[in-house]
Design a binder for these strands. Structure first.
Lengths: 263, 263
DNA sequence: CAGTGGTCTAGACCACACT
DNA sequence: GTGTGGTCTAGACCACTGC
């Protein structure tokens, strides 16, 4: 495999000096393999939950050694794009698995023994199809005025309304989304996005602030306007860092907290 | 190297069947090497900023192949305990490096171009040696009444007091800590902990809430009692998950936000 | 130039899951 | 048993750093 070509029919890594003049943009073989696997993931060649070919098969396909494939797959597994299961195979990661459900929800109960840690009760307020306001269009990488969906919902834990969220999604990718469909589905929202729209959220970024609630938030969360709330602004991305969701939530934090691990 | 012994004089991995009866507690060689390196780090055999022996030297010392050492060091590097530098060697990580300073401070300016991202102005209010209140003793793993230090300080960005913090440290480990020493040192606090007390913070956990400020916080941050603040409770750990710091901070978030990457 | 970490290969064997 | 991922080894060569 030559260096810095996107694909190649045969492995020339040990035959040709890989780095005569291209030293500036040198990229190791396993990174190139990683990019190829990622391409297949994005193209939907293997769907969430499916097994991908074994390491030896991939090694044969790309004409590299199994160890090189292993290193590429290792990185994708660490980024939660793939899941390795010893003895079984390597699978495309999915938000539908019990194990990783609510990977992105960091709000935990202060007293885990007395308060539920499980999924919340969800109430979809509405789901509207709109022309994107400028701010929304900008963060989602759309042209101003393109179609977007706006979903509003309330999450309750132990019967206490705790989270109010405003979710913006690109109209083109989520064609056919309705409040009814959201209400009918009992799985996590991101699991439905995978199966119904072929969109897998891979990475997210959250910005947190302390705020006081607006009048309508007071209504939905049944709090006074003096109750400080945690405002969580989330950008979620699919493959290749494509923004696919903008979510603005406010959390009650009197019996729960946002837990963050620093490594 | 036999399996499941903490150390061994020679490599028997290829000689003895590693796993006749101990299948339940099997641990791979590289994990054992990792534990040994970690032990040397904790014991201070190599100090923050120092180079550790080369992969070949470590391989010779532990009687394993270089590849096995590599995998152990890889993991320690990913956990930020070591830093690899191609061509130079592998070094014990330190909070003193420009590159990783304030690794644990997640408060970022809303407008990076106009607001400073750099280190804050620090004002040490006081540093008291006390007998640990029960709550403090519990989280730090001390007996109630053991000595602790309480440091209070204010951090300002662009002349705006933004963070008020209350920091609790075990008295035994930080013997000799004073407000004067804290004020005299211009480095990040964790860098001083390394050089002056031999304590390296390796991992931390933060719990976030929205709160309204107490009367003294209003004073220090010059805000009204109606200003919602982000309360950040941090537990920091040294090697082997030993708790070494409990820190309770309140952040102003009107011009800054807490940024969190979800992967 | 020598020494370090980084990549790649080839082959052996182990642990695990399914059949 | 067969096939999967997981570990370990040995050796080659590349890229980077500093003498």
């Amino acid at each position: 495999m030559t260096v810095n070509t996107t694909l190649l029919p045969e492995n020339t890594a040990t035959l040709a000096p890989p780095n005569a003049a291209v030293s500036a943009s040198f990229s190791p073989l396993y990174q190139q393999i990683k990019a190829l696997v990622l391409q297949s993931l994005q193209a939907g060649e293997w769907k969430p939950g499916d097994p991908i070919p074994s390491e030896f098969e991939l090694a044969a396909r790309y004409k590299v050694s199994q160890g090189t494939v292993r290193k590429a797959v290792d990185e994708l597994a660490k980024e939660h794009l793939l899941v390795r299961r010893q003895g079984k195979g390597t699978f495309v990661a999915t938000h539908a698995e019990q194990q990783v459900q609510f990977r992105f929800l960091k709000l935990k109960p202060d007293n885990p023994q007395s308060d539920s840690q499980g999924p919340a009760d969800r109430q979809i307020i509405d789901c509207k199809r709109l022309r994107a306001p400028p701010a929304v269009a900008q963060v989602l990488g759309l042209r101003s005025g393109e179609a977007v969906f706006q979903v509003r919902r309330v999450l309750s834990f132990d019967k206490v309304p705790t989270i109010f969220e405003d979710i913006w999604l690109p109209g083109a990718a989520f064609k056919g989304l309705t409040a009814e469909r959201l209400r009918a589905d009992t799985r996590p929202m991101y699991a439905m996005f995978e199966s119904d729209f072929g969109i897998r959220m891979v990475r997210a970024q959250e910005r947190l602030r302390a705020v006081l609630p607006s009048a309508d938030v007071c209504e939905w969360l049944k709090v006074t306007s003096e109750t400080p709330l945690l405002k969580v602004e989330r950008m979620a991305f699919t493959y290749h860092n494509t923004p696919m969701e903008w979510r603005i939530g406010v959390y009650r934090t009197d019996n729960r907290h946002y837990l963050n691990e620093l490594n």
